[in-house]
Amino acid sequence: MVSVVYEAPDSIQGAIDLLANATITTKVLAGGTDLIIQMQGVNEERLVVDVKKIPGMMDATLSDKGLDLGPSMPCAEFTARDDIKAVYPGLVEAAYLIGSTQVQGRCSVGGNLCNSSPAADTIPALIANGAQCVIKGPGGERTVAVEDFVTGVAQNCMDKGELLTLIKIPRPAANTSDAYLRFIPRTEMDIAVAGAGVSVTLDDDGTCTAARVAIGAVAITALLVPEAAQALIGTKLDEDALQAAADAASAASKPITDRRGTVEFRTHVVGVLVKRAAKIAAERAGG
């Protein structure tokens, strides 16, 4: 049975000290919707550092510069923020897809990111929005782009003693919007078989001037696909451009076959999702 030492520090420094000085395995606890399940059947002593009492970890501030998202804010609170939804509708949709009402009451975007599952729904949406992770640890602070944060299945670039303290999402340029879509066999409560997050910027005559395309659940980590974005930039997002972006996303994907989908299916579907998400993002951008 797992034996737990529980601490709930009230400052980031307090959390870092606990994590850095521990002599046993440490785990940060946000909403626990991954962690508490993962601790079942573990046979060791663990230091669990609950970060929900730390000011800033649970807040979100929207300004002209963008969104400073406290990584542990429960998704129920995040998705209820109409001001945030107006600016990043795709990211909010991705957060809303996680689990049931009950899971939403606890799960967080930071937990989704730090759990670093290939199928995590918010990761492609964060990458599409150019989000950055602010990480603090005994060695100070560093900032890492979300596409570089996750390094493998359930692995990320954080070292012992480090904590994700903020997710910084730049304010989108004028006429920019985003969308996130995933494929699941059911209508809710399922894990993505493939996912796509797209952000597009349009000029006054509807030509795409900037884009970011990210795909999930089709490789060991979510991927930023610059080739797919390039296929959209300079076009009016006509069928040929959308198909070229879809093809680029399919080509970049490196999926596996498991009981929820085959390589062939995932490769195809991720392209379809990129196409559809790009269309939705463009409609929202006001093209």
Partner: peptide, 18 residues
């Protein structure tokens, strides 16, 4: 299912100490 501070959650995914 229970509510904590008015919010619906799964009590199997919360620690008692929380």
């Amino acid at each position: 299912s229970v509510t904590i501070n008015g919010r619906l959650v799964c009590s199997c995914l919360v620690l008692g100490v929380e």
